[in-house]
Amino acid sequence: MTLAHDFPVWAAILVAFFVLGGSAITLVGSLGLLRLGTFYARTHAPTLGATMGMGTILCGSALYFSVLETRPVVHEVLIAVFITLTTPVTLMLLARAALYRDRAEGSPDVPAAERMEEAPQRPESAENRSEHEEPAR
């Protein structure tokens, strides 16, 4: 624990506010992972931590190091940019994979594929595969 003794109070209050607010928002998002009922509803929960929770905690970190080293420390921007660009990509891929699996199983809860080439072509499980009688290659 090497916190500076002469750290200004106004900055300490701001850092505490940012860090506590961000972690509280992240906790709410992760609670959503437990409370929401279906998979597609649950995909909305992690974005809370990945947008505002991440943003406020990184703000707090940048402010703390800038005041501590008395020079602007802004390399936290890099983490923010990476997370902002990557989290939507992973969530989209994951939701599309789940949609594909649900359609392959014929689940009534998801909208059906509108065009033939979107519809799942390849059966997933071994039982399905034996029904379709793929020709041996």
Binding site: G49, M54, I79, I83, T90, L91, L94
Partner: peptide
Amino acid sequence: LGLDTLYVNAML
């Protein structure tokens, strides 16, 4: 999805 949330939380 849990793993995805876990790594963002661990990063924070």
